[in-house]
């Protein structure tokens, strides 16, 4: 973000509105009760911390559409539950030497670091895959599959189910 000569009011005192909101909500959750005093302290923290730490966040990740993000979160949550049952089944009822585990390399179309981080986290939490490494230029993801009879299909699954959605949200 190129800094203009005179930053506007919002740019200066509310550099990251989403971070402010998140901090306030987390403070209220920590308090575990709803009170006006708590809300005021939470808002003060939520406004002060982004200002003090704004040097560490030169860019702010842009969300294109909130409802797409929410639907993505719901898809991921459902997949986490499915993944858990699937992995539990594999652990209990499959002989350990019959597992066809393999490494796959997923080329990334995503460019923003936030989107890649989110994709890596999603891949780890969803069926039978753990993201293990990123290529040095940040354009390919190394993924380990617990049980993948067809590695190419696993790559296609990650790209169509998660990466395409993230691309719509962030880029």
């Amino acid at each position: 973000m190129a800094s203009p000569a005179k930053p506007g009011f919002f740019k200066r005192y509310l550099p990251h509105p989403l971070l402010t909101l998140t901090l306030t909500v987390v403070w209220m959750l920590l308090l575990n009760s709803l009170s006006w005093g708590g809300l005021v302290v939470g808002l003060v923290l939520g406004i002060l911390i982004p200002i003090l730490s704004s040097h560490f966040w030169p860019d702010r990740p842009r969300l294109k559409s909130l409802h797409k993000f929410i639907s993505y979160a719901l898809v991921v949550m459902w997949d986490i539950v499915v993944a858990n049952i699937q992995v539990a089944y594999l652990i209990l009822f499959r002989r350990a030497d019959k597992l066809r585990s393999c490494w796959i390399s997923v080329p990334l179309d995503l460019k923003s670091p936030e989107a890649i981080t989110l994709l890596a986290g999603t891949v780890t939490m969803t069926p039978g895959t753990v993201s293990s490494d990123l290529s040095a230029d940040g354009r390919a993801l190394l993924v380990h599959c617990l049980d993948a009879p067809d590695p190419a299909a696993a790559v296609a699954h990650i790209k169509t189910r998660y990466e395409a959605r993230l691309k719509e949200i962030f880029e």
Binding site: P113, I116, D133, L134, S135, A136, D137, G138, R139, A140
Partner: peptide, 25 residues
């Protein structure tokens, strides 16, 4: 990796910052 660079655990990131490196890199 199918890229000019290897995996980041073993290779250093490219020197020219054409693109900000990912926080995980």
């Amino acid at each position: 990796t199918q890229r000019p660079h290897g995996w980041s655990t073993f290779d250093a990131p490219p020197a020219s910052p054409t693109k900000p490196p990912s926080p995980k890199a």
